[in-house]
Amino acid sequence: MVSLSTGVIIGSAFNNIVTAFTKGVVEPILAIIGGSDLGTSHLKFRIWERMTTVTEKVNGVEVKTEKLMPVLLDVGSVMGAVVGFLITATIVFFIIVKPTNKLLDLMLKKEQPPAAMPPDVALLTEIRDMMQRQEERGLKGAV
């Protein structure tokens, strides 16, 4: 229970670092490559338009007008979220998961008994031991 709560707290604090790194380092690099900003304001694609009633104040009077408003597909924020997720997953995997698994493997290797022999090897070993015992007793010629 303590491990889970610690993970949640550290994960939420780590989110701020990943967001800052993504916005401050990764997005500018991708902007150089792609020629545009990955922010939510630049990578939007118009899917279609729909009529919407808009209320505006003109000289203190509310005026309702019908306007054709675009419906946008916001690719920039999705790409930013994917990059943030990939950075988080990579760091968590290489900083937390891999070392923990390696440590557990080292601990378990010390505690495990030697592996059991395959059945055919065990049978041959048993036959060899029986023959050696018979030889030691001098019964080899009698059989």
Rank of each mutant, 00 (worst) to 15 (best):
T65G: 05
W48P: 00
V143H: 03
I95A: 14
A13N: 04
Q112L: 12
V18K: 06
I95K: 09
I9P: 01
V63L: 13
R46T: 12
M131P: 01
V8G: 10
I33D: 02
K23W: 06
V61P: 01
T88L: 11
G34W: 05
K44E: 15
R133I: 05
T65P: 01
L123K: 13
R137I: 03
P28W: 06
L86Q: 08
G35D: 11
L30R: 00
L73N: 06
G80S: 09
V2L: 11
V83F: 15
V63Q: 15
L72T: 07
R50I: 02
T88C: 12
F93Q: 14
V83W: 13
L68Y: 01
I33Q: 02
L104V: 05
V26Y: 04
V58L: 13
V58Y: 10
L139D: 15
L73I: 03
K67P: 08
M107E: 06
D74M: 02
S12A: 07
K98N: 02
P114D: 14
H42I: 04
S3H: 07
L72W: 03
S12P: 00
M69F: 01
V75G: 08
T6P: 00
Q112N: 08
T6K: 04
S41E: 11
I17Q: 02
E66V: 04
T90E: 11
I29Q: 11
D129L: 10
G11F: 04
D129V: 09
A13W: 05
G34C: 03
S77G: 07
D129N: 13
A115G: 04
L30A: 06
T88H: 09
L103M: 13
K67V: 15
A20N: 04
T52Y: 01
A122G: 05
L108I: 08
L68Q: 08
V92W: 05
T125I: 01
I95W: 12
G141M: 08
E49Y: 08
I32L: 11
T22Q: 03
T6N: 06
V143T: 08
G35A: 11
G34L: 06
I9Y: 13
K44M: 10
G84L: 01
P113C: 00
L68K: 12
I87F: 12
I127F: 02
I10S: 09
E111N: 04
R128M: 09
V54L: 00
L124A: 09
I29V: 15
S77I: 04
K140N: 10
M79F: 06
M131Q: 14
F45A: 03
L123V: 09
T125R: 13
S41L: 09
G7L: 10
M131N: 13
V92T: 12
G11W: 04
P99Q: 05
K110V: 10
I33C: 03
P119V: 09
